[in-house]
Every structure is written in structure tokens, then in C-alpha cells.
Design a protein around this nucleic acid. Structure first.
Length: 804
RNA sequence: GCCGGUGUGGCGGAACUGGCAGACGCGACGGACUCAAAAUCCGUUGAAUUAACACCUCGUGCGGGUUCGACCCCCGCCACCGGCACCA
């Protein structure tokens, strides 16, 4: 009988909705006495294009886990929401004149209906929308707390600016010198910008990684992003100037090999001492040349070293007392360390290249390598290094040098991070207004908390101003206000927050989405936090995750949340590629729409295929034919009902059932959905071949499959006469002892080569196994005329004879 | 350049972390049902060899090694993917 998925799926979706089946119980409510499980997936940006199958894959993993947890007796919260501020919506609004609010509402409605068609067990009573006033009220509240603690500040800086989007971008949003949104080349521009002092939390963010269960590569990427290095700060004296040149180095052990110094072109010491520099024109010319280059050209296109020697000032090595030249060069960045370095050409390749080009001495201080051909960066015995001579081992030499530097007051040990402060403003309409008032008397004043939310004013024209200022700057009624502190006339900040703001704390709001007194009720936070399992894309591992960990840690420090880390566990799904093996994109025309798949095959088939197509964490191409294979599988499950007679255990199937329950239980937890489904397919094949099973066994089977294909399983459950939802049936258990067959086929090898198999009782002792093979006439010829040198037996696996 | 990952049939992918390579699915081939097709069901399907699904041989990117035994461990390469990148 052909399974009518369309009406069956609708039927169960309606019932789940009517019964509010997946509503998580808050503390005090019935169900909250159970152990809690908080499963989180990355909420989508509701784009006009609707969802594609990649979204479905991203949510399916924890959908399975959440459904399994409910069956295991947990009180599960599996929420969904929308990260709806952002440029695509705003650009669409600029183009069409339709208000972003309306665009967003339409898109959310579209996404919601698509998600419901898939049958995800989200708690729809907790939906959040970051553009909702009652949500961004709290984004603004957090900003005010950051500001009060000095973690939000304003600074003039060279920023990455996208001339097309007319917006300032963070380093994270402008990787590769391209705008993350429109992919045009970004340029450098001097602007007054807001920063969040995330660097203050660099060490905490790094150390926190030791307490969480993230995929190793996720952790590694965060570690790299934070980029901690240890070394020393060293103060070099300057000739004729009563000032020191402070540098940062990871290799203080090579101090005796310093033959020149390099400062970033923008280094403030240059202007401060312009009167002592005899070649300022030359330096200015070089600076102008550098300023023309984008950061991309300067850092990405590694090419010839360029630079200019500063005439008139020299540096004094505090250890050797030697006088050495100072250069400016753009291979040294103002934004890292102190903006100046000591150059050791013998042991640093960049310094080596520079020295070769400018004819500077190269003094080796570590034995090994040939510093005439390239810098030697390996370890070795210290030479030409005064008190370090004869030492070997980088660590010891560094420690010894730092000790010396500290003794003579010329430096100290220190650490540096690659991570930079977070540029936190955008000159756009569709974002959270930054709740700050600029008062000519009081300076920057926060909007009083009782006045939050600071709402976006109504507008009809959303394009940014010509100078790249926020569209909000055009609205006088918004801009002009009175200072909350002194009551005098003042002006509002007109920039808005970046899209990352709303997603930096959304997992907390799910816990108490309608609270108008605080982010979330402390009792509820104590119950639900932290997120037990967070799944999402690898592309969000550095930016979104680090930002949100930062906010969470801040909220922890001010006593708002009860735990130091927001996510106890993090996994990631792989991409779904188009049928052509390419990344899905509109331009390639290889996007698969989940709606089309559901129309043709049903939601259960879609879900099953997405989980079956391969390793959940790896990218895999879409295959229409394989979808059909999953359809056949579910059809065969449906057909099982007519084969189900009586109760109890079918002896021929008993071991297989125990095996499958074990396999599926374990594989789901490891997100090995493909092999779990393969195991269920194998069991179906066995049952079909046998021709019968009991109704109890069918019940076990549908409970295993339920997290993957819940509509079909609920339907069969009902046919079995059960009135309760299968969603809350108990998860099947297995008996370890019954997962192995009574007789096991064991491989027989001679000299490691497979020569046959032998049936042996389960867990047959080694000696018995060896004896059994020797007694088996099938292997007699293998022993004939040979001497057995060694006998190896692995229970239930192999027996191997080494013969001569 | 650095860090991480991957490489297995015609295809997607399995393989207890050293123990029968290719589970499961797709595709293909053969058969059943059908007037026929679709759907469904049954069988075969790594390569080579063969009358043979008998034996032997080869086979997990390439070249070596360790081991009774290697997709798995070690050494040296190649290719592709992801992240970072003149970070001192």
C-alpha cells in the first residue's frame, strides 16, 4: 500500500501543534522535575530566498538528539528564532521602498511555514526575532552595561570601509580585503568608531576553551583566532632622545643578534621627533605610498620588503650597548605588539630579506643553518651572545634573557594577542540603535534603562548618506534630544549595532522570551543554562561564537548569568553541495528547495536522506536518486505493519534487534546518523527476508526511527493501537550480552593472509579456537609439511598461524 | 608559508582506532510480475583471471618502513578542502 505522506504528515504536525507537544517546561511547571536538555541550533537569517536544504541539515542533527532526549525522559528545550537585522533586508528595502519591518515579517512567515512542514520539534512558544523591540531592548541594555564598565568605547581609527555598502566593517567582516556582504574591495578610512574591548577577555576566552566540549577543530580555530603568543617587551634606548623604543618579541634570546630596528610607518615616535629626523620628506613620501595600499595589499600580497632608514635617530641595544639603525617599513604593523620590532636577520626570515635588500649586518647567535642563504629558525647552541653563550634550548635561553632584562630594568616578559577589539557600529538603519546621547556638557551619556527600547524611528528612505553616515542622522526628531544627565540639548548617536549583536545572546532569551523586567528570569537561567549542545556551521566558529562567548562571560562577570561558558558542547554540520558537486548558489542554479522535495517525497524522506547522505560533519553532494532510496526504505518500514503478528520476541531477530538498538543509540550520540540509518535498513532487510516480526518488535523499530522520520512512526504507532504520542514513548534499551550471535564466524589466516573462515561459539577461548582450526579438515592442507611458528587468536575476530 | 582536515568500487559513503576492506544506499546487469512500461520483488555486482560466485593474484592517493597481520601506526612525497597569514 502506497504511503500517503502528505496527509499523514499534516495530520501529525497538526496534532503536535494542537497539543503543544514540544513545549519545554519551565521551572515549577509540570515536567520541570525531569533532567533538562537544552539543544541549540544557529537561528537563521530570514532571507527573501527562503530556506534551502542546507538549513534543514543544520537543524536535523539536534532535532534527532532532541527527540531522542525526550524519549529518554528529559525536559527538552529545542527553540528556534530569527536573526533578522542585517544588510540584505535593508538593501532590498532601499531598492523597493518596502519597509524592512514588513520585509522581515514576510520572510519570517515564509521560513516558519517551511520549518513546520519539515516537522521539526521546535518549541514554537519561544520564537524570538532580534528585530523585535522587546528583544533589542535587551541588546541595548547589554551595550549600556558594557559601556558602563568601559568595555564599549569610541576611538578614531583607520577602518575597513566598504564603498559599495557605505559601511564600516570589522576585520572579521572584511577578510581577504573584500566586503563580506557585497564582495567589493574595501578601503581604509579614518573614522570615529565604536569598539567593544573584547581583547580584555582574550585570556578568559582562551582559558574557557579548556572547560568545554567542542570539536577539536572548532577549538583550534578559536585558539588561532585569539592568537596568544608569549615573549618579552624590550626597551631600546634612543640616541639623543630621552625616550625609549618599546618593542615586543617572542625571541628575546636572540637579542645579541639584533642589527636594526623597524617601526611601523604610522609609529607616533616619528612625528614626535620629526625635528631630529633629517630625512622627513623621504619618510613622508614612503608613508603616503603605504597609506594608498589597502590592508589587503599590505598583508596579503607578500612581496619585496620596502622601507626607509630614519636618519638622525639610532637605537641602543640595552644588552650589548651597541648603536643600531632604525627603519620604517610596512611589514611591521601598528596594530600588533607595540608597532615596532627588533630585527634579527639571522633568525627571522622577514628580517633576513630586509637586511639582504638594505645591506645590513647579519649576525648569527644560534648555531645551525647557513645565514648566508636564509634565516635559521631552528634551535641550537647560543653563540656571539655574551652570558647566553653555550646554552641550548630556546625556552631556557628566553627565560634567562628575560631574567636579565628585568634585572637591568630594560624589559619584561609579556604576552600578546592577535585578536583585535571588535568594531561595533554600522551606519545603517536596520540594526539596533546604539543607546548613547552625545551631550556637549556631559560627553557621552547612556540612555536611561527605563527608556529602553530606544526604538528605530519610522522612515521611508533607507539609503545611507553620501558621506557614509547613518540614515538615522537625517531624522531630526531622532537626533535632537535632551541630555539624560543635565537636561540640556544633546544629540543621539545615530549608528546602529552590527548584525552580530543580536546573535551574541539569543540563546539566553529563549530561556525567557517574554520577560520585560530582565534578560531572563534568574531562576529560569539557573535551570536552563548553559546550552547543553550547540550545533552550527564551521563559518560561525570564530566570529559568532567568540563574540557570544565574550558577551556571555561579561554577563557572568556582572552576575546576570549563572555560568562562565554559554555552550557546553559544540558540533558542526557539513555543507550540502549541489548535484554537480559545487557549493549551492543561486548563480550556479544548483540550489535544492526543501519544499520541492517535500512535495514530491514528503518530509520524512527529506529528513532521512539528509541524515543518510554521508558523514554529518562533512560536505556531500545532493543526489536525487539517493533520495529515492530513502523513499523505498520508508515505504518498506510502512509495509512492516502487515508483517507484524503477535507479541514477544522473534528468535531469529533477537540478536539483530539488540545490535541495532545499541548501534542506533550510540551512533545518534556521535552524530553518525548515516550509519545509524544504515543499521536500520539492514534490520529491515533481515525482517523482510524472514517475512514476519512481532508487534512488540515493530514498536521497538519505530521508536528507533522516530527521531529521523517522526510522522511515519507516529502513524504506525497509532495503527498499533497506541493513543499516546510516540514522541514521548521510552527510548528502547538493549542487553549487551544479546548483541553478539551465539556462533561467530571467525577469519582464519596463515601468515596474515586470509584462507577461510570457521564458525566458533561466541567468546570462544583462544586455545579452543586454535584447536578448532587445527581439527578442521578444511585447513589440513595448510599445515601439511609446515611448522607452526606462532599462533595468534583474537576472540570473535581472527585466528592466525605463522607457518614455515 | 603556518595550522587543521581529507584522499577507499562507476557514485555517496562503511570498517570495533591494528584483526574477514567495500556495511548501507545509489547506479548497472540478469530474472520474476506485466500485452508493455513504471512501480515492486528476487539475484549478481572491487579489478584481473576463469567454464566456474573453484583456485591463485592484485587492490584503500604515491614511495618506503614497523608488524603474524596496516585504510588504520612511523618516515618521505603528491593532490584537494577549510582556517590563519609580513603577528615580530
Amino acid at each position: 500500500m502506497k504511503y500517503d505522506y502528505l496527509s499523514v504528515e499534516k495530520k501529525w504536525q497538526n496534532r503536535w501543534e494542537a497539543e503543544k507537544a514540544f513545549r519545554a517546561a519551565d521551572p515549577g511547571e509540570k515536567g520541570s522535575e525531569k533532567k533538562k536538555f537544552y539543544g541549540l541550533v544557529e537561528f537563521p537569517y530570514p532571507s527573501g530566498a527562503g530556506m534551502h536544504v542546507g538549513h534543514i541539515k543544520a537543524y536535523s542533527g539536534l532535532e534527532v538528539i532532541s527527540r531522542k532526549r525526550r524519549m529518554e525522559g528529559y525536559n527538552v528545550m529545542f527553540p528556534m528564532g530569527f536573526d533578522a537585522f542585517g544588510l540584505p533586508t535593508e538593501n532590498y528595502a532601499i531598492k523597493t521602498g518596502i519597509h524592512p519591518r514588513q520585509v522581515t515579517d514576510n520572510n519570517i512567515a515564509k521560513f516558519t511555514s517551511q520549518l513546520k512542514r519539515v516537522g521539526f520539534s521546535f518549541d514554537w512558544s519561544r520564537v524570538i526575532d532580534t528585530t523585535d523591540e522587546n528583544y533589542y531592548k535587551w541588546s541595548q541594555w547589554i551595550f549600556i552595561q558594557l559601556f558602563k564598565k568601559g568595555l564599549a568605547f569610541r576611538d578614531t581609527a583607520l577602518v575597513n570601509y566598504c564603498p559599495s555598502c557605505k559601511v564600516v566593517l570589522s576585520n572579521e567582516d572584511s577578510q581577504g580585503g573584500k566586503c563580506d556582504i557585497c564582495h567589493s574591495d574595501i578601503i581604509q578610512k579614518s573614522k570615529d568608531v565604536w569598539y567593544l574591548r573584547i581583547t580584555e577577555y582574550a585570556d578568559k576566552l582562551l582559558q574557557g576553551l579548556e572547560t568545554v566540549d567542542y570539536l577539536p577543530n572548532v577549538k583550534q580555530q578559536q585558539v588561532n583566532w585569539i592568537g596568544k603568543s608569549t615573549g618579552a617587551f624590550v626597551n631600546f634606548g634612543l640616541s639623543g632622545i630621552d625616550e625609549k623604543l618599546k618593542i615586543y618579541t617572542t625571541r628575546p634570546d636572540t637579542l645579541y643578534g639584533v642589527t636594526f630596528m623597524v617601526m611601523a610607518p604610522e609609529h607616533p615616535l616619528i612625528d614626535a621627533n620629526a625635528d631630529k629626523i633629517s630625512n622627513m620628506e623621504e619618510i613622508e613620501a614612503y608613508r603616503a605610498e603605504c597609506a594608498k595600499k589597502t590592508e589587503f595589499e599590505r598583508t596579503q600580497l607578500v612581496k619585496d620588503k620596502t622601507g626607509v632608514r630614519i636618519d638622525g635617530i639610532t637605537a641602543i641595544n640595552p644588552i650589548t650597548g651597541k648603536e643600531i639603525p632604525i627603519y620604517i617599513a610596512d611589514y611591521v604593523m601598528m596594530g600588533y605588539g607595540t608597532g615596532a620590532i627588533m630585527a634579527v636577520p639571522a633568525h627571522d626570515q622577514r628580517d633576513w630579506e630586509f637586511a639582504k635588500k638594505f645591506g645590513i649586518d647579519i649576525i648569527p647567535v644560534i648555531k645551525g643553518g647557513d645565514v648566508e642563504t636564509e634565516a635559521y629558525t631552528g634551535e641550537g647552541e647560543m653563540i656571539n651572545s655574551g652570558f647566553l653563550n653555550g646554552m641550548s634550548g630556546k625556552k631556557a635561553s628566553i627565560a634567562r634573557m628575560i631574567e636579565e632584562l628585568e634585572k637591568i630594568g630594560a624589559g619584561e616578559g609579556g604576552v600578546q594577542f592577535k585578536m583585535k577589539d571588535w568594531a561595533f557600529n554600522r551606519q545603517r538603519y536596520w540594526g539596533e540603535p546604539i543607546p548613547i546621547v552625545h551631550c556637549p556638557k556631559c560627553g557621552m551619556v547612556t540612555v536611561p534603562e527605563e527608556e529602553l527600547p530606544l526604538k528605530l524611528p519610522p522612515m521611508t528612505e533607507f539609503a545611507p548618506g553620501q558621506g557614509g553616515e547613518s540614515p538615522l542622522a537625517r531624522i531630526d526628531s531622532f537626533v535632537n534630544c535632551s541630555c539624560p544627565q543635565c537636561g540640556g540639548p544633546a544629540k543621539r548617536e545615530t549608528d546602529t549595532m552590527p548584525q552580530w549583536a543580536g546573535s551574541s545572546w539569543y540563546f539566553l532569551r529563549y530561556i525567557d522570551p517574554n520577560n520585560d523586567k530582565c534578560i531572563a528570569d534568574p531562576e529560569k537561567l539557573a535551570y536552563w543554562a548553559p546550552v547543553d549542545w550547540y550545533n552550527g556551521g564551521m563559518e560561525h566558529v570564530t566570529r559568532h561564537m567568540i563574540y557570544s562567548r565574550f558577551w556571555h562571560k561579561f554577563l557572568y562577570d556582572i552576575g546576570v548569568v549563572p555560568c562562565a561558558e554559554p555552550y557546553a558542547k559544540r558540533t558542526a554540520q557539513g555543507l550540502i553541495l549541489g548535484p554537480d558537486g559545487e557549493k549551492m548558489s543561486k548563480s550556479k542554479g544548483n540550489v535544492v528547495d526543501p519544499n520541492d522535495v517535500i512535495d514530491e517525497y514528503g518530509a520524512d524522506v527529506l529528513r532521512t536522506y539528509i541524515l543518510f547522505m554521508g558523514d554529518y560533519g562533512a560536505a556531500a553532494p545532493w543526489s536525487e536518486n539517493s533520495v529515492k532510496g530513502c523513499q523505498r526504505f520508508l515505504q518498506r518500514v510502512d509495509d512492516l505493519f502487515v508483517l507484524a503478528k503477535g507479541h514477544g520476541v522473534t528468535p531469529e531477530l533477537e540478536t539483530s534487534f539488540h545490535k541495532t538498538v545499541k548501534k542506533v543509540s550510540e551512533d545518534f550520540e556521535a552524530m553518525k546518523f548515516n550509519t545509524a540509518i544504515a543499521a536500520m535498513m539492514g534490520l529491515i532487510n533481515e525482517i523482510t527476508a524472514l517475512g514476519h516480526l512481532t508487534r512488540d518488535e515493530l514498536y521497538t523499530f519505530i521508536r528507533l526511527l522516530n527521531p529521523v522520520a517522526p510522522h511515519l512512526c507516529e502513524e504506525i504507532n497509532e495503527r498499533l493501537g497506541n493513543t499516546e504520542l510516540l514522541a514521548f514513548a521510552s527510548w528502547p534499551t538493549y542487553d549487551e550480552a544479546k548483541t553478539v550471535d551465539a556462533t561467530v564466524e571467525v577469519a582464519v589466516q596463515f601468515n596474515g593472509k586470509l584462507k577461510g573462515t570457521i564458525a566458533l561459539p561466541k567468546d570462544c577461548p583462544k586455545d579452543d579456537a586454535i584447536a578448532a582450526v587445527k581439527a578442521d579438515p578444511a585447513f589440513a592442507s595448510m599445515f601439511a609439511g609446515k611448522t607452526v611458528v606462532k599462533e595468534i587468536a583474537v576472540p570473535n575476530r581472527i585466528v592466525n598461524f605463522v607457518v614455515k
